Amino acid sequence: MPAEAPPSGGRLLVEEDGDALVVRIANEARANALDERILEDLVSLLGGPRPAAVRVVLLGGAGDRHFSAGLDLGDRPADELVAHLQAGERLLGRAARAIADCPRPVIGVLNGAALGGALELAMACDWRVARRGARLGVPAARLGVVYSPDGLRRFVAAMGPARTKRLFLTGRPVEADEALALGLVDEVAADDAALWAAARAAAADVAAGAPLAVEGTRAIIAAIGEGAPWEVIEETAAPARSRAFGSDDFKEGLAAFRERRAPRFRGR
């Protein structure tokens, strides 16, 4: 008889690191698989209040082998698996929306394999950095599953229809360098140390900007990316631009530019 899979003990590891909130998916016994607790905690964490000092969220996996193996299927019999998968998909969709709607930019740090629903979470991030050799893929077709449209649209937006079909219909995972060429990730780092260094450098660059400018720009880009009517895009842009132009941070940014010094933004 095959050995039983170890029980799931999923959790999030969360720590502040300067301007960044570092969040790691931790379920090491099951390749960081996404169980109910992890997904619910992601929704609560990213949708709730956070320290004012936090300007960026870095989302990675615990350890150095896996970002996450995707939804935790457990050892349920086939007649129970459909209901479990459907419930998991709904919770996964909520977690992906929490990432996309987070008031702070979220950078995906793919320190290892990102498969299935885990890759959907990564695609909801503002952008993604991957370690060379990390494998990314969605084996839905090989499991006999039709993927949710909400998840598919993120891939189509990043890769286009043809490349999304190739990824989903073949079920073949790609390594980080090919993922970069396909548009699945935006940067590849040589190893784990370089990966986190690149992620923290990106976080520092974002944190150096005015928070209201970052927030407003993200909202407008999101509306454009979702194909919103131009009137809706303008309705999103107008208050964001007005708030930024009327802010103390705009005055500070202008003064710092004229005085040739680094600005000190306060988010107001």
Rank of each mutant, 00 (worst) to 15 (best):
A33Y: 01
V14C: 12
A5D: 12
G117L: 04
L92R: 09
G112E: 10
A29I: 01
G209V: 02
R268M: 07
D126P: 00
N27E: 07
P139I: 06
R30G: 07
H84I: 10
T170L: 03
S8D: 00
G117N: 06
L42E: 01
F265M: 12
A52E: 15
G227T: 05
G93R: 15
G209N: 12
A118T: 05
L184V: 11
G60K: 03
P173A: 02
G267S: 01
I233N: 00
V174H: 05
A190C: 03
R24N: 12
A262M: 11
A237P: 04
I38S: 04
R37L: 05
R260H: 13
A198K: 12
A190W: 08
A208L: 00
A95V: 05
L180F: 07
G183A: 12
D19P: 15
L46P: 09
A122F: 10
L121A: 04
P105D: 05
E259D: 13
A29W: 03
R97F: 00
V145N: 00
A52R: 15
P263N: 11
D177W: 02
L59E: 04
D72G: 02
M123P: 04
R261G: 06
G10E: 11
E231S: 15
W196Y: 14
A33W: 06
G70K: 07
L182S: 10
S68F: 10
D35N: 10
N27G: 06
V43R: 11
A124Y: 14
A83D: 15
L119S: 09
M159P: 02
G267L: 03
R132G: 04
L81M: 14
G63I: 08
N27A: 07
A158R: 15
